[in-house]
Write a protein that binds this DNA or RNA. Structure first.
Lengths: 208, 208, 208, 208
DNA sequence: TATGAATGAGAGTTCATTCAT
DNA sequence: CATGAATGAACTCTCATTCAT
């Protein structure tokens, strides 16, 4: 029963933080949506801030599992990179609130630090993967970071700006077909880049 | 004097909305930062919501001017696309608050509609540009929208996720040099894509 | 075990009521300090109010025993008065929380009545002692009450205002030496008064 | 009108802090008693704590004026000491809430420091007066402090323990007649002490 | 235009107390 | 006896907004 309450609060908070943002999602609202007493939020989580962190942590743990499966996997980098992007898109599709929360809080405010400390290891994992895969193409961490930031931006914007694209396209950009198309586009972007990296890599490798 | 007050409010609100978000930037704070009386905000703007819209509108007007110069310009698309991206990056660098505001509010909340209606014409301009430039590569609006969304994501993430990259890179990703490097990366991404589009275009053109 | 819990609650409540006052000493705090479950306070004492009364009653029972030994004793009144004051000082020194609780709650609030009903018999004992000792000096209860109130005030202020004196004196007014000096002062005040009472008594006795 | 509100809040707070203590006097209650909006308390005083300090400061300023008139006056010390005590009693009679507030907060809690810093100069003034008057009777500050503490205790207990004495005496210890009697008693205590001090002073003076 | 004061609603949080196990 | 969970009321405080001057 207690575990149940804990969960109900987490899920309502998750939804509402995603929908309205941290400030606009009041504890009263969260309590109403959970169907629990407002005081229970503080009983279970201590404060609204800690509740937020719990929501965030839960997401990053799941995301960490999803990504590490790909980061630490085997096989050609091009494939791993592609499937990782697919997995990322799937994760965000299944956790729309998360994408909103991250975009909002990363843009500045009281929880940026938490976002930073959670994203850092994931990003570093990506950097290492790229450097290992194309040692000749990258001399330092800057290049891989550029690449990752770009792909990260392409992916998350899919979700953040879906409402902006919808009226232009005339259909829901987060529907199954639309997302499949988006994935193809992203894969194509990966192909372009990876081919380029391989070419560069080969070229520079020969120079040595 | 009144014009002056109007302006001071706008600028303080701009800064604070960017730094803390709409909810956390209280009218008291805005008044303090402006050095004006709190009641004047309502005298000049009617409500906090309308003040926010004024801030947003001011940005989109400036941005519109900047972008339309490139969208409606002449010369090869590859160049126009490249300079447009450069201009976009410069605009966001000069208006950091704007990038934060957009990312936050586009992620959902009370002001999404305003963001949508402001972004739509800009996006449509971009779509038209791409379709006109590569009529053979794109059959409908979906392809260009994908491309634009991707580049938009790459650009704005530069600013939103700068704090995340900073500790990994060991330097400020928004410094002059770093931004120049970022621009080169973005240009490279444009090159890859445009070459691809031209190839596809040529290919499909020949098929006809 | 149950007796143990009862005791642990009483002692924690005692300390905390003394340190922070009734309102500021929350049941949560008392439970934490006792190392017991918050609900047990109500199981054992019914309510926070009743817990407070239990703390108070325990003190007054102990104090009653201490004082009655002197009030009902034999020997010259001057000596009994002096030793009573010493005993009172010692009692308060050993029960600092008590002195704080009494001063605070006697100053008004929800528990004044309890304080009154507990202090009344003690005060009446003192009045009777003085009237019996100096029948010629006092015609009614008013005179003895004045005297007792004055000495009571001198004694308890020793403890209530120790923090105020400390920075002026440069040492702890509740240290062993300081308290011994205080006792000497109080005894001196008793000497002055008793000599006066005896003189008055003799004078008036001769008048008759 | 604003000054009026400020005053109404101060007076209601004063009464309620005196009657119930800081914690039990809620801002809601204070607002109701003042007939003003709850938020105005924070508009005018910032916080409940600062409101409390304002109440306290107002009292100590008034008290300072009253006492300094006597401390810095001229004439024989016996007379000045006597009239000072009378003035103190009058002040407390006219400011019953003050006596309660001081007794309660001096007994420990969040505002002790404020009490200490306010009482210290007054006490030091008293110490200097006594040392100047009886240089031969006192070698250091300890003796005068003892004396002052004792008289202070006698005076304030008059008010703190009035409710305890009432049922024993059968009349209100704070009525005009009763207070006059109390003053006579206190004066008598002063007489006893001063005579003693003068005797001691003379004795020791001759020894030199 | 500009100001200080005022308002009512609601924020997050803590409280003493109760309940089911 | 003891516990963790739950409750509803109350807390201090801040909010956007309005009003009188």
């Amino acid at each position: 029963m207690a575990q149940d309450t804990h969960q109900k609060i987490l899920e309502a908070a998750d939804q509402l933080f995603g929908e309205f943002g941290f400030d606009a999602a009041s504890t009263r609202l969260i309590a109403e949506r959970s169907g629990i007493n407002k005081a229970l939020i503080h009983y279970h989580f201590g404060s609204k801030d800690e509740l937020f962190r719990a929501v965030l942590d839960r997401y990053y743990e799941r995301l960490g599992e999803v990504l590490s499966a790909h980061l630490e996997g085997e096989g050609p980098v091009r494939d791993r990179f592609t499937t990782l992007i697919d997995a990322y898109v799937d994760f965000l599709r299944d956790n729309l609130a998360f994408s909103h929360i991250v975009q909002r809080e990363a843009a500045g405010g009281r929880h940026v630090e938490r976002i930073i400390s959670r994203m850092t290891p994931l990003l570093q994992g990506g950097v290492q993967l790229l450097r290992a895969a194309y040692p000749d193409a990258f001399e330092d961490d800057v290049g891989p970071a550029q690449v990752l930031l770009s792909y990260y931006g392409m992916i998350i914007s899919t979700f953040t700006y879906a409402p902006v694209l919808a009226p232009i396209l005339g259909f829901d950009p987060l529907g199954d077909e639309a997302l499949a198309a988006r994935k193809r586009h992203l894969q194509h972007m990966v192909d372009l880049l990876v081919s380029d990296l391989e070419a560069t890599s080969k070229e520079r490798g020969e120079e040595k």
